[in-house]
Nucleic acid binder design. Structure first.
Length: 830
DNA sequence: AGCACGCCGACT
DNA sequence: GTCGGCGTGCTC
C-alpha cells in the first residue's frame, strides 16, 4: 500500500511511503516513518495502490483507528493552504503535544567514569572531550538533543557515533511513547483483609502501640470507604491528615493495594465559584429571540455565521448555554471558544454546573498529559462539549452542530508563532462550513471586519441592547487629567474624584476594579543626570522596573537583571522611576488610604501574580467573597469577570492604549475600555459607575466608549479603513525578515521585496525597520502587503504570488541564517 | 527543520 | 595533517 504522509517539517508537500498493511481506514492515522536520518511521526493523508519505485517503507502504524477524521483533514488542509504553512506543521499544531513525539536518540556511558576521565584529553576542548565530560558529570543517560544544545555545532551525531564505535558510549533510540492521560496513585484495602473485620480489628490492636498513625489510617479508610473502592491517595491523605509514608508502609505490608489510574479532573464541587444550573433561568425577550434564530440554524445545518452583538452584561453566555443544550438534544456536539484570558475559573465553573457531564476544557496551561486525556475523551465521543481557547478549534469533535466564538474581536484568536499563524475566529467559519455546523460570533464590541460583514449581509445579525436581570449599563465619567493636574485635583496617578469614589465604595464594602494595562512597578528607570535608561541586551526595548523584587525585566525576551540604586553609566544616584505599572498603582493606593486611616485590602491581578497554578482562582475567590476590596489589574480584569458586588471601575490611564502605531489601535482602545467599563453594575441590585482618566477626553475611542456608542465608533473607523485600504477592505499581510546581522536582514528584505510584483490586487510597503527593531538578538525588517479584496476576492492571486516568491527565495537561500516569517491577516503592523 | 557533505582557514 | 565553521542541498 502506498501512503502519502504529512510530516512535521516546514516543507510544503507530503511524502510517499510503502506501508505493509491491508487494513482499511488508513487516512487520518499516524505512522512512524524514516525521514532523512530521522524517524518522525506523520499523519496519513492519502492512500493508493500505485507502484512507485524508490520509496522507503513506513516503520509502524501507530493508531488502531483514525485520529483525524475526513472533515478535520479537509479543514487542516485549508489552514495549511490559506496561511502558507506546511500540512505537517498544521497537523502538529492541531494535535496534543505528544502526538508528534519523534524518536529521540539517547546516550549512555558504558565505561566507568574513571576510565572515561582517563581517556579525555584535558589539554584541548575537542567535541568528543566535551561530550564525555558532560556524560561524566551527569547521573544517568542524556538525550542527544541535550548534548547538542550544550556542546553546540552541527556534527554532534557523527561524534556520538564514533564514540559508540570506540565502545565508550551506548547510543540507542527511545521507544515510541504512546499518549497516556495523566494518572495518579489510587489505593484500596486488600479485599481479603477488608472482608474480615475481625482480622482488621486484631491487626489494629496489634500495631496500635508501636505505629498509631498506621492503625488510625486503617480505621479512617474503613469508615470513609465502606465499599472498599479505589480512592485517590492524595485526596485521602489531605482530607484526613495522614502522611504518605504511613500509607506507603501499609502498602509495603500488603494491607493496602495501589494502582495508577487515569486521573479524574479535580472537580471539587464545593469550591466552585458558581454552582447553579443556569439552563433553567428565564431569558429576556431579546435573548429568547436570539436563541430561537440560531437554534433553527443548528437544526437545519445552516452555516451562515451569526453575529451576536450584545452589550456587556446582556447575558450572551446564557444564550450560548441554551444553544449548546439544543445541540446535545439533537445528538450533535458543540465547540465553545473563548480568548485565553477569559477562560476564567468562573466561566469554567458556570459551565460545569450547567453541564455536569461530557465537558472538555482545553487551555494552554494544561500539561501534555492532561491535554492528551481531553483529546482522547473527545475522540471517543465521551465528551460532546469542548470549551477552550484558540487551539480548541482543532478538537476532534464528530458531528459538530455548533461553534461559538465568544469575544470574537479579541486579538488573541490570532496565533503569532509558531506557524500556522491562523486566526481561530476566521478559521472557525471555515470549519463550520466544512462540518455544516451553525456558527455564532459573539461580542459586545464586534471587530470592524465582523460588523462590516454583518452590515452587508454576509453574516446575520442578532442584537441584545439591554442588560439582563434588570441591570443597567454603568454611568460613565471621563476625567481630563491635564485639567485636574492644573487645578491641583490629583494625587500621584489619581484624580481626587476617583479617590473619593473609591473611598465611598470602601465604606459600603462594594467591589472596585482598577484597570491599568501595564505590569511591573514603573515603565523604566531613568538617570536624571545623564538621561541613561537601562535597555535590554537582546532587544531594542527599555527594561521594565519591578520594584517588589528589585529587578529590571524585558517583557519581550524575559531577560532579567538586578536594578541598581546608582546609574550604571555615570554613577549618579538620581535614578528615577518613570511611567507607572500596576505595582506602583497598588503601592500608591496603600499609602493614600493608610495615611487616612482607612482599612482596605488590595490585590493585583496580572501576569506576575497569576503565574502559579491556581493563583488566578484564589485571587478571584477572595475578591468575590469581599476579602479583597480593590482588584488592580491589567487586561486580565477586562474580560469575563462577572461579580455582582462590583459597583466602581476605574481606568487609571486610558492614554496607554492610544499611542501605539498600528491601524487597529483605535479599535483596540475602544474595545478594551468598553470591556473594562462593562465589569461594573452587572446585577440589578447595585448600580455601576466607571471613571476614565485620560489626557485626551475627545479621542474618538474614549468618547464613543464613554457614550456606550458602538455605532458612532464603527462609522468613524470604517471610513478610515476604506481611505487607507486597511481590513476589511484588504487582507493585511506582513513578512518579517530577521537576522542576527543587521546588514543581512536588510539585504534579504530588499531581495524579497524586489521579487514581489505589485498590482491593483497587491500593494506593498517597505521593507522598513519595525518599531522594535531587535528582539532576542535578531534584527528585524518588515514588508507589509495589502491584498485588495475588490481585485482579489479569494486571495488566490496573493497566495500564488507569495508562494512563488518564497519558493524562489528558499531555492536560493536554503538553510540560511535569515529567518522569514510570513503572516497572513497579521495583527502586528509594527 | 535537521542533517550531512564538502570547501577552507587555523592550529599542534 | 586534522578539527571545526559555514554555505549548500536534500528529505518519499
Amino acid at each position: 500500500m502506498l501512503i502519502s504522509v504529512a510530516v512535521p517539517v516546514p516543507i510544503d508537500k507530503t511524502f510517499d511511503y510503502y506501508l505493509e498493511s491491508d487494513e482499511e481506514n488508513l487516512i487520518g492515522r499516524r505512522v512512524l516513518v524514516p525521514f532523512g536520518k530521522n524517524k518522525l511521526v506523520g499523519v496519513i493523508v492519502n492512500t493508493s495502490l500505485e507502484d512507485k519505485s524508490g520509496l522507503k517503507i513506513a516503520i509502524s502504524l501507530l493508531d488502531e483507528k483514525p485520529v483525524f477524521n475526513d472533515k478535520l483533514i479537509k479543514f487542516l488542509t485549508w489552514i495549511s493552504d490559506y496561511y502558507l504553512c506546511s500540512l505537517g506543521e498544521t497537523f502538529k499544531a492541531a494535535a496534543p503535544p505528544d502526538f508528534d513525539s519523534e524518536i529521540k536518540s539517547r546516550v549512555n556511558l558504558i565505561i566507568s567514569k574513571e576510565q572515561a576521565y582517563a581517556i579525555i584529553d584535558k589539554s584541548k576542548k575537542s567535541k568528543k572531550t566535551q561530550i564525555l565530560e558532560l556524560l561524566i558529570n551527569s547521573s544517568g543517560d542524556l538525550s542527544a538533543q541535550h548534548i547538542k544544545r550544550v556542546v553546540g555545532g552541527s556534527n554532534i551525531l557523527a561524534n556520538l557515533k564514533e564514540l559508540a564505535k570506540l565502545g565508550y558510549i551506548d547510543l540507542y533510540e527511545e521507544t515510541f511513547k504512546e499518549i497516556k492521560g495523566r494518572t495518579s496513585k489510587y489505593i484500596k484495602m486488600s479485599d481479603e483483609l477488608f472482608n474480615s473485620p475481625d482480622t482488621i480489628e486484631s491487626l489494629v490492636a496489634l500495631i496500635e502501640k508501636k505505629t498509631p498513625k498506621r492503625a488510625l489510617a486503617i480505621n479512617l479508610f474503613r469508615v470513609c470507604n465502606p465499599q472498599n473502592e479505589f480512592v485517590k491517595l492524595n485526596d485521602f491523605c489531605e482530607k484526613f491528615k495522614v502522611g504518605k509514608t504511613v500509607i506507603d508502609a501499609l502498602i509495603e505490608s500488603e494491607v493496602f493495594l495501589f494502582e495508577n489510574l487515569p486521573d479524574e479532573l479535580d472537580d471539587k464541587v464545593e469550591n466552585r465559584l458558581s454552582d447553579k444550573n443556569e439552563l433553567n433561568l428565564e431569558l429576556s425577550a431579546e435573548q429568547q429571540k436570539s436563541v430561537e434564530f440560531i437554534a433553527d440554524k443548528i437544526v437545519n445545518s445552516d452555516n451562515k455565521p451569526t453575529l451576536l452583538h450584545g452589550v456587556t452584561g446582556s447575558g450572551k453566555t446564557l444564550v450560548y448555554m441554551r444553544l449548546i443544550k439544543q445541540c446535545l438534544d439533537l445528538g450533535k456536539t458543540a465547540l465553545y471558544m473563548v480568548p485565553e484570558i477569559s477562560l476564567t475559573p468562573q466561566l469554567i465553573d458556570r459551565f460545569k454546573s450547567s453541564f455536569p457531564e461530557g465537558l472538555s476544557i482545553i487551555h494552554s496551561r494544561m500539561s501534555p498529559g492532561e491535554k492528551a486525556k481531553e483529546w482522547k475523551d473527545i475522540l471517543s465521543g465521551k465528551n460532546k462539549i469542548v470549551i477552550g481557547a484558540r487551539s480548541a478549534l482543532f478538537a476532534p469533535l464528530d458531528n459538530l452542530g455548533l461553534i461559538v466564538v465568544d469575544e470574537e474581536h479579541d486579538g488573541s484568536y490570532k496565533q503569532d508563532s509558531p506557524a500556522p499563524r491562523y486566526n481561530a475566529r476566521d478559521s472557525a467559519i471555515v470549519r463550520a462550513n466544512i462540518e455544516k455546523a451553525a456558527i455564532v460570533l459573539g461580542s459586545a464590541t464586534p471587530s470592524i471586519e465582523t460588523m462590516f460583514n454583518a452590515r452587508r449581509g454576509k453574516y446575520d445579525l442578532c442584537e441584545i441592547s439591554s442588560r439582563c436581570d434588570g441591570a443597567v449599563l454603568p454611568t460613565l465619567k471621563t476625567i481630563d487629567m491635564l485639567d485636574a493636574k492644573k487645578s491641583g485635583q490629583t494625587y500621584k496617578n489619581f484624580s481626587k474624584e476617583l479617590l473619593e469614589k473609591i473611598e465611598d465604595r470602601l465604606t459600603r464594602k462594594e467591589g472596585i476594579i482598577l484597570f491599568h494595562n501595564r505590569r511591573g512597578f514603573s515603565s523604566y528607570l531613568q538617570c536624571q543626570d545623564c538621561g541613561y535608561i537601562p535597555q535590554c541586551e537582546h532587544c531594542s526595548v527599555k527594561l521594565t522596573y519591578h520594584k517588589s523584587k528589585g529587578l529590571l525585566k524585558c517583557h519581550y525576551c524575559g531577560y532579567t537583571e538586578k536594578a541598581y540604586k546608582a546609574c550604571t553609566l555615570c554613577g549618579s544616584t538620581q535614578v528615577e522611576e518613570m511611567g507607572c505599572g500596576t505595582q506602583m498603582i497598588e503601592e500608591d493606593l496603600i499609602e493614600y488610604f493608610s495615611g487616612k486611616g482607612i482599612d482596605c485590602k488590595i490585590e493585583r491581578m496580572d501576569l506576575d501574580t497569576t503565574s502559579k497554578k491556581g493563583s488566578h482562582r484564589r485571587i478571584l475567590e477572595r475578591f468575590a467573597s469581599g476579602a479583597t476590596d480593590i482588584l488592580v489589574g491589567t487586561q486580565m480584569v477586562a474580560k469575563g469577570l462577572d461579580f455582582e458586588r462590583v459597583s466602581l471601575v476605574g481606568i487609571v490611564n486610558a492614554d496607554l492604549q492610544l499611542f501605539i502605531p498600528d491601524f487597529r489601535t483605535n479599535e483596540r482602545a475602544f474595545q478594551l475600555i468598553s470591556q473594562v467599563v462593562g465589569r461594573a453594575g452587572r446585577s440589578g441590585k447595585i448600580s455601576g459607575e466607571a471613571i476614565i482618566q485620560t489626557s485626551r477626553p475627545d479621542h474618538v475611542s474614549i468618547k464613543s466608549a464613554a457614550e456606550h456608542s458602538y455605532n458612532a465608533f464603527y462609522e468613524q473607523e470604517i471610513k478610515e479603513r476604506l481611505a487607507a485600504a486597511y481590513p476589511p477592505f484588504s487582507r493585511f499581510i506582513s513578512i518579517e525578515i530577521s537576522s542576527q546581522s543587521i546588514d543581512e536582514a536588510e539585504k534579504h528584505a530588499w531581495e524579497i521585496a524586489s521579487s514581489i510584483q505589485q498590482s491593483s490586487a497587491l500593494l506593498m510597503l517597505g521593507p522598513t525597520a519595525p518599531h522594535i527593531e531587535r528582539i532576542r538578538e535578531y534584527y528585524r525588517r518588515i514588508i507589509i502587503i495589502k491584498n485588495i479584496k475588490k481585485h482579489d476576492p479569494s486571495g488566490q492571486i496573493m497566495r500564488l504570488t507569495l508562494r512563488r516568491v518564497l519558493n524562489n527565495y528558499f531555492s536560493k537561500h536554503a538553510s540560511s541564517k535569515v529567518r522569514i516569517k510570513i503572516d497572513i491577516d497579521s495583527f502586528n503592523s509594527i
